[in-house]
């Protein structure tokens, strides 16, 4: 089975499951309409979900993804308290600026997850990404250093290892 076909089948099953959960089936017509919608979705956009073979074991990847989710949740709570503290403080203690970090990730999906995580965590917001040189530009609300290596460890390093395990 080709990768595209497998990807389409997975998208079909997922979208049908979401349909069932959203409508809480009470009639056979809803099932048929759900199947049609899932089919259209999987034909239109099914090939984008899985694009390459994964080398690691799926159960291991799922386990790591769950660990990643909780780590991310924790970082996000910290981020919110940090921004809340800055906003409440009458002196408004900010040192804003845009810094650059490097990343070793290559897959589009991995990069998307990394940049979204960076945006949702402490005082950082992804502005742009340069795929050729693998650099991410990040707006920081409190810049601590202008050194690329140090910022890479500080901002990207928290997630990069886990994301590489799950998505590459």
């Amino acid at each position: 089975m080709t990768i595209t076909k497998r990807s389409r089948i997975i998208v079909f099953s997922l979208s049908f499951l979401v349909w069932v959960a959203l409508t809480s089936i009470s009639d056979w017509q809803e099932v048929i309409l759900g199947l049609i919608v899932a089919l259209v979705v999987s034909l239109l956009a099914g090939q984008f979900l899985i694009t390459t073979e994964k080398s690691k074991h799926p159960v291991r990847r799922l386990f790591l993804a769950i660990i990643y989710f909780f780590k991310f949740l924790w970082e996000m709570i910290k981020a919110n308290l940090h921004v809340a503290y800055i906003v409440i403080n009458p002196a408004l203690p900010i040192r804003p600026g845009i810094v650059k970090i490097k990343t070793n990730l290559t897959k589009d999906s991995a990069l998307t997850v990394l940049t979204n995580s960076i945006t949702l965590t402490p005082g950082t917001l992804t502005v742009d990404i340069n795929p050729e040189s693998r650099e991410i530009y990040i707006h920081c609300i409190e810049v601590t250093s202008t050194d690329v290596g140090e910022n890479t460890r500080e901002i990207g390093g928290r997630f990069e290892g886990l994301i590489a395990e799950v998505f590459e």
Partner: peptide, 12 residues
């Protein structure tokens, strides 16, 4: 423009 308090802009 970024605000006047900006420390660094490596993107620029």
């Amino acid at each position: 423009k970024l605000t006047a308090e900006t420390v660094v802009d490596q993107y620029q």
